[in-house]
Design a protein around this nucleic acid. Structure first.
Lengths: 195, 195
DNA sequence: CGCGGGTTTGATGATGCTCAAGCCCGGTGG
DNA sequence: CCACCGGGCTTGAGCATCATCAAACCCGCG
């Protein structure tokens, strides 16, 4: 159950046997079936989730009821509404499972206690958050400076795992474009490649 | 010289007198005149900068030579190309001063040494990066889900400091819209308010 | 006083959205 | 086993938003 998490942590900091055992005590395992909610808009995000297996997503709903995917998380990724998790405010995001998934949950107090007990985890989360920030900034700058097609190319180039497992309309939503537009971009790219 | 930095740190973690003194030794003070570069595209980002005074920005140039502002940083904010700073790769961002500014610089090795010597700083940077991530995600989801006008309203509501001190075309660039578009949005908003 | 950067205004065009219909395919029930 | 249903992808036509280009304007500063 903890293999992926422990391996993921070892890449950034090294925990000894006893620290690993201690670490496990802070988490609650949880399984979700495809389409099940992990967090619904308006609730408070009580847990941060590590994905041991499966595929999750977070998204917002706009006033027209359209979904806008903020993040995908497959094995080895964390997912939560950080803002709601840290402040206790209501969340404006929804998180659900795209595939049957196995999660490891940690709540706010366990989160803090864990840092206290295993200071190396402070470092782990700093590095993790740093990487997340870099990726998010890159995505933002792409969204600001590049065309829909270029953003799609960038996504294909970098995230083959997600591309294979996520339905196309969610990819479109993630890119911030209409599903029809993505369909046309793909058609266009295929015809260019052929010639 | 260190007042703003120390105060900023105290909000998140508390350092005693000796830690504060030690902390100062890792930084290099630097003054920049308006329009001076801190980092140019293609260089490696050797330092992360804390803004003690003044106003900085980072931006990318697209193939047409248009600037796209990624971030503003006024007193109490950090600025750098994190990716380049951490990996040593060439930067694709440019950073310069919008106003005369006073910075505190720290390089990669000092950064690591500082964490080693003052573990609380690990926590400080984790919290800092977390907040940055939350803000960036919010901006991204706005850019994906909202109209240009709504994004502008959100910016006005949240960042009065920046609005006062940054020329309008840079605000437009930050929002990812053309300066003409922002001008029209403002005109439109003003006329609605009046009626 | 005139120059120049920044902002505004107008006309035009591109990119991507919306709405509507058709298609493809996998799953389900008769 | 097949027919039907439904979701997701595609295609088309018209439209909205925002970008581009060009010109005028405004105002602070040398």
């Amino acid at each position: 159950m903890f293999e992926v998490l422990l391996k993921n942590i070892q890449v950034k900091v090294s925990l000894d046997e006893s620290e690993q055992e201690l670490l496990k005590t802070y988490f609650i395992p949880k399984k979700l079936r495809k389409k099940q909610y992990f967090l619904q808009e308006g609730e408070t995000c009580q847990y941060t989730a590590f994905v041991e297996k499966g595929l999750m997503r977070s998204y917002t709903l706009d006033e027209k009821g359209h979904e806008h995917v903020i993040q995908f998380a497959l094995e080895g990724w964390w997912i939560a509404d950080l803002y709601s998790f840290l402040t206790g405010e209501h969340s404006s995001y929804t998180i659900d499972a795209i595939e049957d998934s196995e999660l490891l949950l940690i709540d706010t107090t366990s989160y803090e206690n864990m840092m206290q007990a295993i200071p190396k985890m402070e470092r782990y989360f700093r590095l993790l958050t740093q990487n997340s920030l870099i990726a998010t900034q890159r995505r933002l700058s792409g969204k600001i400076a590049l065309s829909a097609e270029e953003n799609y190319r960038r996504l294909v180039a970098g995230n083959t795992g997600i591309m294979q497992r996520v339905p196309q309309h969610m990819i479109a939503s993630f890119l911030g474009i209409a599903p029809e537009t993505l369909s046309r971009i793909r058609k266009q790219m295929a015809s260019v490649k052929r010639s």
